[in-house]
């Protein structure tokens, strides 16, 4: 029994770290991993989703509806920003650092001025479940399921639907796609919007568990970038194993040596993984399968 208890506890910690990495990096995986836009405003899309979710939930609508609303609004905002700014930067991705940093400054400070320095939270639903004597947050178990569902849905979307195939074609060979009659401008807009919506979804999912402040997005940004980069060029092959490896390292180090080593260990692991596999995990995995 005690063994089961410890095993479940370990699994829970791993799943929790895994879910956090997967959910927070999904949006960035599309925008940065696929499109190559270095999006420093990723955290602000997350904040946008969280704020909308909290507002809608406080209107009395069910949390699921609120989270979807958060994702949709973030996605729409993303499409507008793509139209106005990002569209001009596809051929010079490094400049997107400056542009998105600017957007992030405007968003954080704008929210502070308009909505104030804090926002009331909405509370974690579902309560706790007791498993083998320890109690766990049920909502966090839901988040783990959500992370896996999200991976599956993204895979289906990009590999099994027409939109996905066209989107990948547009981003890999825009000229060819255009020659075949694809409205590439629209595809870029939609893909960026999808990335922003995924970031909004992350905000919505984590909104009930976090404090709502304009700078809340900053907690996500480093982990997101790190996961996407370790994953490598092909995000669908790389991101999930990257999140799994990093989550394992983080959960183990945190459990044994405390949060400091969890944090530092994650970053050191990134440096080491990139050194050993300069193309990221996906390049290595693909080489293995060839």
């Amino acid at each position: 029994m005690a063994l089961f208890q410890t095993a479940f506890a370990m699994l829970y910690q791993f799943g929790d770290a895994f879910a956090f990495l997967v959910i927070s990096c999904a949006g960035l995986a599309v925008i940065f991993g696929m499109m190559g836009v270095i999006n420093l405003a990723h955290g602000e899309f997350i904040m946008c989703g969280a704020y909308v979710t909290a507002t809608v939930a406080r209107e009395g609508l069910p949390l699921v509806v609120a989270i979807i609303a958060g994702a949709v609004v973030a996605g729409l905002v993303g499409m507008v920003i793509e139209r106005l700014v990002i569209r001009h930067l596809y051929h010079r991705p490094l400049d997107s650092i400056i542009a998105t940093w600017g957007i992030s400054l405007i968003a954080t400070q704008g929210v502070l001025i308009v909505l104030g320095s804090t926002m009331a939270g909405i509370g974690t639903p579902l309560g706790a479940v007791t498993i083998g004597g320890d109690s766990y947050s049920a909502y966090r178990l839901v988040l783990m399921v959500a992370a896996i569902a999200l991976l599956a849905a993204l895979y289906l979307l990009f590999y099994r639907t027409r939109f996905g195939v066209v989107a990948r074609a547009t981003i890999q060979k825009p000229d060819m796609a255009r020659a075949l009659g694809v409205d590439t401008g629209r595809m870029y807009g939609l893909t960026f919007g999808l990335g922003a919506a995924l970031a909004g979804l992350a905000g919505g999912l984590y909104a009930p568990t976090m404090t709502m402040v304009p700078t809340m997005g900053a907690t996500f940004i480093v982990e997101s970038f790190v996961t996407v980069v370790v994953g490598g060029a092909d995000i669908f092959v790389g991101a999930a194993p990257a999140a799994a490896i990093l989550a394992l390292i983080r959960a183990t180090l945190t459990a044994w040596y405390g949060q400091l080593f969890g944090q530092i260990g994650l970053l050191v692991a990134v440096i080491v993984v990139i050194r050993i596999l300069p193309g990221g995990l996906s390049a290595w995995l693909k080489r293995g399968s060839r």
Partner: peptide, 16 residues
């Protein structure tokens, strides 16, 4: 800090 304040929500959800 704002990030660490998330503890309370999470502790409450786990029935501490």
């Amino acid at each position: 800090g704002a990030a660490q304040a998330s503890y309370y929500e999470q502790a409450n959800a786990s029935d501490v």
